[in-house]
Simulated scan of single mutants.
Amino acid sequence: MNNHEIDFKLHGDDMQFVEVELDPDETVIAEAGSLMMMEEGISMETIFGDGSSSSGGGGLMGKLMGAGKRLITGESLFMTTFTNTSYGKKHVSFASPYPGKIIPMDLSEYGGKIVCQKDAFLAAAKGVSVGVEFQRKIGAGFFGGEGFIMQKLEGDGMAFVHAGGTIIKKDLQPGEVLRVDTGCLVAMTKEVDYNIEMVKGVKTALFGGEGLFFATLRGPGSVWIQSLPFSRLASRVFAAAPQTPGGGSQGEGSIAGGLFDLLGGK
């Protein structure tokens, strides 16, 4: 086994966090800003890329190439490692950034590779490679939106993926096709063939209330679907927020509205 073997426990329901148990010298990697808490005896270090052999090979240039790929997905060049430098078991916890579920995935059970949305990765055992999965088809490349640029998690250790709302796992049979809103696709196994297709029908595209494109997934393989993509939640919140000419929001019962009234605003 090339990856560190870590134990974990999930806490919570809709606002989950994962507690990882580290034996001495075991390490877990995580996205910057995902740390919730950690016990004494765990050391933090900021590294280029993900610290795996695939991204760190070839000296400095290899590390720069591995970290540079993360810029394509909109992630930071750096990741953080948490290593147990003491003698006993220690615990470190990582929290999800918005309401949803954390999906633990043992990569060794899925052929050593999972493809996921670019912002879904939360944490993983050291040795798991976090790279970019390029879509081969030009149509998906230009019009894929959220579903185009995806991450690939490779290795034989544990990885933790986060998604919004309720998560459902569907096992597709050979040749079985599932059409999904591009933002609702969370992850899939490497066997699944996927493409981005345009919604047929001008009326459907213009007045249907959905995006112009959806992801077409063809089995065999497993896919994970989320009911509430963060982009959908953010757009609804933004649309519902009352706007003032100055760009701020003023509403009944809001702090901004109260200050506006207090200062004699009309």
Results as ranks from 00 to 15, higher is better:
residue 65 M to Y: 11
residue 65 M to A: 12
residue 72 I to C: 00
residue 73 T to Q: 03
residue 74 G to M: 08
residue 74 G to A: 01
residue 75 E to W: 05
residue 75 E to D: 15
residue 85 T to F: 01
residue 88 G to M: 04
residue 89 K to T: 08
residue 89 K to V: 00
residue 93 S to T: 10
residue 96 S to N: 14
residue 97 P to H: 13
residue 99 P to A: 11
residue 100 G to L: 04
residue 100 G to A: 10
residue 100 G to W: 02
residue 106 D to G: 10
residue 107 L to P: 00
residue 111 G to S: 12
residue 111 G to K: 10
residue 115 V to W: 03
residue 119 D to H: 13
residue 121 F to M: 02
residue 124 A to C: 14
residue 124 A to W: 13
residue 125 A to G: 14
residue 131 G to P: 03
residue 135 Q to G: 14
residue 135 Q to P: 00
residue 137 K to W: 12
residue 138 I to L: 15
residue 142 F to A: 15
residue 143 F to G: 08
residue 147 G to H: 09
residue 148 F to Q: 09
residue 148 F to Y: 11
residue 151 Q to M: 01
residue 151 Q to E: 14
residue 153 L to P: 09
residue 154 E to H: 05
residue 156 D to H: 08
residue 158 M to V: 02
residue 158 M to C: 10
residue 159 A to Y: 02
residue 159 A to S: 11
residue 159 A to C: 14
residue 163 A to C: 01
residue 165 G to T: 00
residue 166 T to N: 09
residue 167 I to R: 00
residue 169 K to V: 05
residue 170 K to H: 13
residue 174 P to S: 02
residue 176 E to A: 08
residue 177 V to R: 10
residue 177 V to Y: 01
residue 178 L to D: 11
residue 178 L to W: 11
residue 179 R to S: 12
residue 186 V to M: 09
residue 188 M to E: 09
residue 189 T to L: 02
residue 195 N to Q: 07
residue 195 N to A: 10
residue 197 E to G: 07
residue 204 T to L: 11
residue 205 A to V: 12
residue 205 A to M: 12
residue 206 L to V: 14
residue 207 F to C: 06
residue 207 F to M: 14
residue 209 G to Q: 11
residue 213 F to T: 10
